[in-house]
């Protein structure tokens, strides 16, 4: 779920972007976040995900395959970062997610019985569950596509932020804001969901565009340090204390931290309870478990393996897959194998 900093991000720190701006740039994509987006969005009218003949869900593979090809065609260089072992302080959030999914499953059944497809779709989206088997299939697909996969030792967003801090990627890509707390200098939202999207419960379509959020501008315009931003997030609620502090929203959290300086001084005033030591949570955001042991390299797509995997194992349409592979090969040749340079190299 991630921390919801949406209402706190100053307008000066974010802007809509066009994909043309991203040409040649490396993106460390939060893989779990992207897969959940695909799993949630790619569904039939009643909310049933795409499935193969054996009843295995394939929505995540479909989204990952076609969207990644779109990225490469537009000149982006994606690298997917997968979550490792969740930190112990995340136990409360994981338990909460399980509860939400169980409740959604009940409501889904009721909606189906009532014949309310709109509600059924909504609850089905909330039920989205990414199993280990699905994650392994996604990794295998990326491997055959020649796209780098990075295995984080802990949180994927922390690793993606670290890769961006080191300059190995231009931005992290996720719908969540956590990577900013982990120190990513630049976050791109909406990358995996850009395009025409239907508004929930309305028959209205909107054009979703990528949004760039820059950490230094967030800190500058809010007038806080990164550590203070983390403190604010902890008061609102993070993955490690999902409930936050009762009665404290983004504005009050900002005022409290700016007035008193830090969590240590604010907590006694609020007499709040936390499922985990909030200072420990802050420490995790400041120093998460990450690794230097990763490679960001793209390679030629393996046509035969892709067809065998998608069509042979998961019943994808052979003609559609073959067409998409041709697009991928062309885009790889044009945008990755051959490097399009920028004129800025000759300006000085």
């Amino acid at each position: 779920m991630g921390v919801n900093l949406k209402d706190l991000i100053p307008p000066e720190a974010k802007r809509q972007a066009e994909f043309s701006e991203f040409k040649g740039k490396v993106f460390a994509i939060d893989a779990y976040n992207a897969l959940y987006q695909f799993l949630s969005a790619i569904r039939q009218a009643d909310g049933t995900p795409l499935m193969d003949s054996r009843g295995r869900v394939t929505s995540h593979l479909s989204g990952l395959f076609y969207r990644t090809i779109n990225f490469i065609e537009m000149g982006l260089k994606p690298a997917y970062v997968f979550d490792g072992k969740p930190p112990e302080i995340k136990a409360a959030e994981l338990a909460r997610r399980t509860r939400v999914k169980e409740e959604a499953a009940k409501k889904y059944e009721e909606a189906i019985r009532r014949g309310d497809l709109e509600a059924a779709r909504r609850y089905a989206q909330m039920m989205s569950k990414l199993t280990d088997e699905m994650v392994e299939a996604a990794k295998k697909l990326l491997y055959y596509m020649g796209i780098p996969c990075i295995q984080a030792p802990g949180e994927g967003e922390a690793q993606a932020a670290y890769i961006t801090i080191r300059g190995d990627s231009w931005a992290t890509a996720s719908q969540d804001y956590d990577s900013l707390l982990f120190g990513s200098p630049r976050l791109v939202r909406n990358l995996t969901i850009s395009g025409k999207r239907k508004l929930p419960r309305k028959n209205v379509y909107i054009e979703v565009k990528p949004e760039i959020v820059e950490l230094d501008k967030v800190l500058k315009y809010l007038g806080v340090t990164r550590s203070q931003l983390i403190d604010i997030a902890i008061l609102i609620g993070t993955d490690y204390n999902p409930e936050g502090v009762r009665g404290v929203g983004p504005k009050r959290a900002l005022t409290l931290i700016k007035t008193h300086g830090s969590l240590e001084k604010v907590i006694p005033l609020l007499k709040a309870e936390f499922p985990e030591d909030p200072i420990k949570i802050r420490e995790y955001f400041l120093n998460p478990t990450v690794t230097d042991n990763y490679k960001i390299e793209w390679s030629e797509p393996d046509e035969k393996c892709l067809v065998d995997f998608l069509c042979g194992e998961y019943d994808f349409s052979k003609s559609r897959v073959n067409h998409a592979i041709e697009r991928l090969k062309k885009a790889y040749r044009e945008n990755i194998k051959v490097k399009q340079m920028g004129l800025d190299a000759w300006f000085s």
């Binding site: 066009e18 043309s20 701006e21 991203f22 040409k23 040649g24 000149g75 399009q340 340079m341 920028g342 004129l343 800025d344």
Partner: peptide
Amino acid sequence: MLSPDKTTM
């Protein structure tokens, strides 16, 4: 004008 991806001017 410089294109956003800086490939053309």
